[in-house]
């Protein structure tokens, strides 16, 4: 199941405390034209809600955040095809897989429905 953060990331529970992370369609649309993704190193330890990576678009720069954990895999395709974040943000444009320090960390995040409501509110 996917959870969403108010900061516009999605977290897909892969089991065993691993989560796949990307940014929401809404965030990708708002950011538009992502040209570089500054991917984290595999093995990087992240404190809770620390920046996982930086997304650079033509006009703006944004961070994607993660719960506490360790980066175990990154989407290397983004090195050459940052545009995948725009084309398919909730699929092929995923950013990284993180092994969570606390497997229950996703409990505090929003369901997709709850998340979509927070966007509508704006």
């Amino acid at each position: 199941m996917r959870k969403f953060a108010k900061t516009h990331e999605w977290y897909e529970d892969l089991g065993g405390g691993k989560v796949k992370i990307g940014i929401s369609k809404h965030a990708a649309h708002e950011l538009s034209d992502v040209v570089f993704v500054e991917l984290p190193e595999v093995g990087k330890k992240l404190a809770d809600k620390q920046s996982l990576c930086v997304l650079e678009s033509v006009k703006a720069v944004a961070d994607a955040y993660s719960p506490a954990g360790t980066v175990v895999e990154v989407n290397a395709k983004l090195k050459d095809q940052a545009g995948l974040v725009n084309q398919d943000p909730e699929g092929a444009g995923w950013i990284a897989i993180v092994q969570l320090d606390n497997p229950k960390a996703l409990d505090e995040y929003l369901t997709e429905q709850e998340y979509l409501k927070t966007i509508e509110a704006h």
Partner: peptide, 12 residues
Amino acid sequence: PVSYAKGILAEH
């Protein structure tokens, strides 16, 4: 408008 549907890069 900051951009239309195609986005800034395509318009540029």
